[in-house]
């Protein structure tokens, strides 16, 4: 099994507040890793360290090491633009740009220099098919993306993320604003996407983590308490704190 990210002794501070503490973790390629834990435990913060999104926040200090494909992403010469291209992100609330469906998808490829119309057309069709949205929107590609339903918007955001051909997709509670039908469409999609991509997903829904992920990591107060195969975490976790959290005894 290929290790995509190797995280060692990761500490993160917002000013004087330490949000991540001594995190050691491996994230495996073409697997789905779920991050669970109570609100404020550092899941989103951790996710953002994987594509250096925290760099944009004032006063953040990071220690330790994160290797992506064996290269230290916090190393001096590391190309952040390239990192963000390879490690895409999907957020909790679908956030399409206030543009057409088509333009939402070609936005990334254009920034990265793609100009050829037929290539862009191909990317649009390809990625919309990958997220099972093509049939639903192929006749309205040049209509505003904001006219789509929430579930469709979220799939569009995933398509937009895929358009720049990432290797990893980070998802921060991607279905928490969606109904069960839209949620199960995205969940079904995840399984297919994992054949090509590595996925890290934050979720508050234990059943969702159980359904979709291969590995689950339990965070508490900025620390990783336990990481294991998902089936182990949800049937027989090693740590009492994990058990108490997933059975709803605290948090």
């Amino acid at each position: 099994m290929e290790t995509k990210f190797e995280i060692e002794k990761l500490n993160l501070y917002y000013g004087t507040f330490q949000a991540l503490k001594e995190i050691d973790m491996s994230i495996y390629g073409n697997k789905i890793t779920a991050l669970i834990g109570p609100s404020g435990c550092g899941k989103s913060t951790f996710l953002r360290t994987l594509n250096r999104m925290n760099d944009l926040i004032q006063g953040v200090k990071i220690e330790g090491m994160i290797k992506f494909d064996r290269e230290d992403i916090y190393g001096k010469d590391y190309d952040i633009i390239e990192l963000r291209k390879k490690v895409g992100m999907v957020f909790q609330k679908p956030n399409p740009f206030p543009k057409t469906i088509y333009e939402n998808i070609v936005y990334g490829p254009k920034i990265h220099g793609e100009k050829d119309k037929s290539t862009l057309d191909h990317i649009v069709e390809q990625t919309l098919k990958e997220v099972a949205l093509w049939e639903e929107v192929k006749d309205r590609l040049h209509k505003p993306a904001l006219g789509l339903s929430g579930g469709q918007q979220q799939r569009l955001c995933i398509a937009r993320c895929l358009a720049v051909e990432p290797e990893v997709i980070l998802m921060d509670e991607p279905t928490s604003a969606l109904d069960p039908v839209a949620t199960s469409k995205i969940e079904g999609l995840l399984e297919e996407l994992a054949e090509k991509y590595t996925i890290v997903i934050v979720t508050h829904n234990m059943q969702q983590a159980g359904r979709v992920s291969d590995y689950t990591s339990f965070f508490l107060n900025g620390k990783v308490i336990e990481t294991d195969k998902t089936e182990v975490i949800f049937s027989n976790p090693a740590n009492k704190k994990t058990e108490d959290y997933i059975t709803g005894r605290f948090g």
Binding site: G210, S235, N236, P237, E243
Partner: peptide, 9 residues
Amino acid sequence: QQPLAGDLR
């Protein structure tokens, strides 16, 4: 209730 871990067992 979708019990997990010890509750599920």
